[in-house]
Every structure is written in C-alpha cells, then in structure tokens.
Write a protein that binds this DNA or RNA. Sequence first.
DNA 1: GGGCCCATGTAATTAGTTACATGATTAT
DNA 2: ATAATCATGTAACTAATTACATGGGCCC
Lengths: 192, 192
Amino acid sequence: MDAKILCLGVISAGACSGYELKKTVEEDFHHFYRASYGSIYPALAELERSGLVAGEAIEQAKRPDKKVYRITDAGRAALADALAAEEPAHTARSEFLVLMYFAHLLTPDRAAQVIDTMTAHFERVMLADVDAYERRAEPLTSGQRFAVGFGRTVLNSIVEYLRRERDGLIDELIAERADQPAEDRRLAAAGD
Amino acid sequence: MDAKILCLGVISAGACSGYELKKTVEEDFHHFYRASYGSIYPALAELERSGLVAGEAIEQAKRPDKKVYRITDAGRAALADALAAEEPAHTARSEFLVLMYFAHLLTPDRAAQVIDTMTAHFERVMLADVDAYERRAEPLTSGQRFAVGFGRTVLNSIVEYLRRERDGLIDELIAERADQPAEDRRLAAAGD
DNA sequence: GGGCCCATGTAATTAGTTACATGATTAT
DNA sequence: ATAATCATGTAACTAATTACATGGGCCC
C-alpha cells in the first residue's frame, strides 16, 4: 500500500497537518502500519500536486507555522477507488522469531533475555494502546473497532504464548547444554 | 536483519544451494520472514567473498548444475556473534487492517469479500504449515518448535477473531448505510 | 539548562522486490 | 501440450528509513 492512500484516508476523517497525521498514524495504526516523516511529507506533496488534497498554510503564534491539508472531491473519489482496488495483504517480519528459531546457537541467558525483552515490549504496547483509547473523545467507527480489536487479540495471544512457553524452552536449552559438555561446545564454536 | 545472517543460519544446519535455501526459508520461516532470490543469491556471494561459507559447484545429470555452500569456522563464529548482537524486533504490516480501519468507506459487500479472502488465506497457511511439519523426517529443535508454535498460535487467534467478528461488522456496516440514505451517500461520494 | 514538543522538509542510504534471461526434465 | 520443478544470477526499480538541517517555546 502506498503511503499516499493512508494519508488520504486519515485526512478524509478531518483536515490535519503532516505532523498531526503522523501522530494519528502512530496512535491508530501502530499494530499494523507505520510511516515516518520521510514518507509522509513527500506523499502529502504528491497528493497536493495531483489535486487530491488542498493545503493551507496556517500561521501560528509561539510555534512553527503549519500546513493543514483537507481532502478534495477528487481526493474522496480517488480514496474510494483505491480502497476498492487495494489487495488485502498481511505479513509479519520478526527478527525475534528468527533468533528463537536458532535458539540452540544462543546461550540460555541470551535466549531468556531476548524473550523477556520482547514480552516487556508487547506488554508496554498493550498498555499504551488501552491508554490511548481510553483518553479518546470521539467513539470509534465499526471498522476502527474491528482493526483495534484484531491488534489486541493478536497481542494478547502473543503475550500468553511467551509467558506459557518461556520457562520450558529455557530449561530445554540448559538441558541440551548439559548433554553436550563444555569441551564439545568449544570445538563446535571454534571448528566444523 | 540482514539476509546474510539468515542464509548463514540455514547453512549452519546443513550445506545447501541457494535454491534449496529458499525452499527452507519458505517452509520454516513463512510465518515471520521471507526472502527472494534477488536477496539470497547476492547474500550468498557476499558470504563467500568474506569467507564465511565455502561454495562448491556440483554437476548434475538431467538437471542444472548447482552450487552447494557449507559453513566455515569463521562463518560459525560470525553467526554466533550476529545472533548475540541482533536486536529482537517484531512488526506486522497489514494492508488488510488498514482497509478494515476504513471499512465505513467500503461497501458491505467489499468488506465481506476482504474478510473472507483473508480468512481463507490464513486457513490455507495453517493447513500448509501442519502439512509441512507432518512430512518432516528430522525432529525440530527446541527453538524451531518455539518459533513454529508462536506462528501457529497467532494464526489460530487471527482465524478465530475473523470468524467471531465478521458478521457483526458487516451487519453494522449495513445498518450504517440504512441510517444514511442513498442520496446522502451519493453526495458524500461526489462532494465534500 | 537540558530535553521534549511543535513543525517541515530533504538527502543519503538501506534493503528489498520484480522482471528478465535461460533451459532441460518431469509430472498432469 | 502445459505447467511445474530444478537452478543461477543480474538489472531496474520501488519503497522506505535515518539522519540532517533549523529553531522557538515550555516544563522540570
């Protein structure tokens, strides 16, 4: 998906600046999408060039000027078309799980540290998420509830899995080490 | 994570060619990682240049020659270092959920079609996964079991969620359409 | 006075995908 | 006969991230 469609979608719910748009993306899409300024600002410029949004410079006292974009008729039509045409896809990329796949090449301490780091990370994300939606004034649309619920459900099952499987895996790794004495390990690390 | 580390890790479990390596990645890592020839072959060439793997050309009757790589001592050491240093990360990217977030801009039919497509997709992946691990000769390492179990757990909770929430969302979308008569929709689609 | 918030934008870099090029063999 | 499998590799392209550049206001 092009960052332009995402920007257009966010702007369709209410005019905003690039900076504000990024906040919204962080808050609402963090489970399944992210965008940096390096992709948002060029996308906005391109959307304006093609007349799908109209930008208006707003002067502000005591803070930098900003440029607020609102969607145009052409933009609304283009958004509907893009959403109708977009192929639904869903992929994960996890350095964490690659690491775990090779757990037998890690020290048990390192394996435990990796799992604990990730567990803490996922727990933080869960808390931040609940927090953000509690502070929210406007009610969510049905689609927003669906997307947020999806993210939470997955997060929950991840944290449960990590808590359930952690100790068992570490114990196995320690047992494997014991089966294979230190001398063998040194040789294995040093040679083929 | 660099594709080089992944290739090195796979090769550490047994010498193989680029083609075979890609098969392994597809089978074992599909839940959380993928790699195309365009990233594998250059990674292999680079690993060989830096002496972390040794490639041997194998002539084959009735099929193309291949080049089988095995890990070197330096490679084993570099892999251990890389796995010890790698930051564990885990991210999802979902055009599907972006689409769902904007479900109110979709026709209920399109929303249902998108959910059904994804449900079927996830179910296919689950079946293929179980299938692949049933046909497997060698037992999995503890880390492999952990990684595969993680993928399956998440997949399961996704499919459950989609099945549980699908009809409710579609009903809501239909109800919202009814609240907002056709004339309004035409205006909303055409103008601001 | 140190660090974060507001705010926009660009340049360099990273990492990857897709399509192309080639072609025999084998299964349906 | 048609598609898939085996097999390697490159070139063009896509899409993004990170860091840089700039700077006042506000909170602790």
